[in-house]
Design a binder for these strands. Structure first.
Lengths: 235, 235
DNA sequence: CATTGTGAAGTGATTCACAGCA
DNA sequence: TGCTGTGAATCACTTCACAATG
């Protein structure tokens, strides 16, 4: 592996692993992690890149190349040690520590996220639930009470929160986002159907339910059109 | 535009717009649509590619190239007619018809999805809510009662459903998926953290909440590591 | 000798930069 | 003149194919 990324790195201080793992690879590491966990639960000790690739739903060349960005954790002729690789990937993603998150906007979706067990099981701890509706403050959702948005800064500081989840209506999202950033949150997962502006040092990802459906609709429509065409040809 | 996609199309019958719009473009069309709707609501009649690009959060060259796959809907020296372009994109995605969808698994998340107004407002109509838990059948969620999974085939046929949403626990997802496919659904949006196998003719998209957080955690960790490094350099 | 790790080739998406047009 | 539409250049990701190796 030489010069990962190829970017002519301006600064000369390159010795320190300037590990530019490609974004596409980063996005698949959690998938591999899940596959490894499943294999581990089945008491599988060793798996080839082909085995793993099948469990993860990718092809084996891609999986090997992805893993090669992390280091050389396999054994030629044998495969990968499931638990060892699992640990290495978890460490790379940063899941060996746990991450306190705050969820803002406790409507239907916020509620669902608050109760989503998949977060806790992967090292994400819900540190607080926040809502701007004063009437709801104090209400319990599972174990946690809903806090006031006014307490955001205090909560972020006290619990060292660096990740925030926005589950408010679109109209409130930018405002909430600004408050999160001001409070010191530097990674945001946004479920509101709105484009959010953030400073450069803040990472933001968007999950948009209706966009996903629209993409399906596009393909669905093309399938239907294709069928109609075949019918027309036949008739 | 000549030979989009470049695939040497085996069959000679190429006259019919074999419109291979790149996937990356398809995924952005809903974003453009939202931006156009916002501009239209503000009574903006015309917008340049630069204006639109800003509203959509992309750069203008990309936006123009994306639109060029659909046709030539702009006016040189002027820009795009907001409402006209909005209609063209909606038509391309298939949002001029409405799409009945079924949601399977009415837990916290299914509940939230059932109540999500963003679906209805974009031409997706929830035709039915289904759950395998007999005890919950009949319970109302908003207007709709929960139906039994046993009625899936009947519902899909009666309402011509082609899109299904899976919001069950991971363990149930493949089984539900098989039932959806058997019932005739050909596009699936999967929220369960599981890899689903489907036949070729079925499209499937996955939304995985914990994967999104893990990707953020990776970047967050890198930021923290970067800071530590700078501190070490300084000290 | 089965399987990894990886250069090299291939494919697809983005960006540049400008000719062409209203 | 100002902005679109688009070839050509670039960049990012994937896949191929095989030498290296436990």
């Amino acid at each position: 592996m030489t010069s990962v990324g190829g970017r002519r790195s301006g600064r000369a201080r390159d010795e320190r692993a300037e590990r530019g793992i490609p974004e596409a690879t980063v996005a698949r590491l959690p998938v591999y992690l899940r596959a490894l966990t499943a294999l581990s639960d089945l008491d599988v000790a060793t798996a080839s890149s082909e085995d793993l690739a099948v469990s993860a739903g990718v092809n084996s060349a891609k999986l090997r190349k992805d893993l090669s960005y992390l280091g050389t954790y396999g054994t030629r002729g044998v495969g990968y040690d499931v638990n060892y690789l699992r640990y290495q990937i978890a460490r790379e993603i940063g899941l060996t520590q746990d991450w306190p998150v705050v969820i803002v906007g406790i409507g239907n979706l916020g509620h669902a996220l608050a109760n989503y067990s998949g977060f806790a099981s992967r090292g994400f701890r819900v540190a607080a639930l926040l809502d701007s509706d004063r009437a709801r403050v104090g209400e319990k959702v599972g174990e946690l009470p809903i806090s006031s948005l006014d307490d955001l800064e205090e909560i972020v500081r006290a619990s060292s929160v660096s990740i925030g989840v926005i589950a408010t209506p679109a109209a409130a999202a930018q405002d909430v986002c600004d408050q999160l950033v001001a409070a010191g949150v530097s990674s945001i997962l946004n479920f509101a159907p709105a484009l959010l502006a953030v400073p450069d040092h803040v990472d933001i990802r968007k999950v948009d339910l209706s966009i996903e459906l629209q993409i399906l609709a596009y393909h669905e429509q093309r399938k239907a059109a294709g069928l109609a065409e075949i019918k027309a040809d036949a008739g």
